[in-house]
């Protein structure tokens, strides 16, 4: 599996856990926090970059979360 596919899979796997929360805003916060606290900056950069290019392959929740990370990265 190439690097970006692996990152997409990782983001989707994380989202699958937090998706149990009926409050999707909370769930997206959980995913974003998990990525922020666990992923090395190059990995975060790559997934944000992928998201900004359309986020193909990312689940809806993963996209919500990475949108939040993308906003944080701008700050």
């Amino acid at each position: 599996m190439n690097k970006i596919d692996n990152l997409i899979k990782m983001a989707n796997d994380i989202s699958n856990f937090f998706n149990a929360d009926p409050d999707k805003e909370l769930a997206a916060d959980g995913v974003a926090k998990h990525i922020m606290r666990g992923w090395e900056p190059r990995m975060r950069h790559d997934i944000i970059n992928h998201y900004q290019q359309g986020g193909s392959g990312l689940s809806d929740l993963a996209k919500m979360a990475i949108a939040k990370l993308s906003e944080q990265a701008k700050v």
């Binding site: 599996m1 692996n6 990782m10 796997d13 994380i14 699958n16 856990f17 998990h34 666990g38």
Partner: peptide, 8 residues
């Protein structure tokens, strides 16, 4: 290469 969602 499947792994745990939280920790790999």
């Amino acid at each position: 290469d499947n792994s745990d969602w939280a920790t790999n």
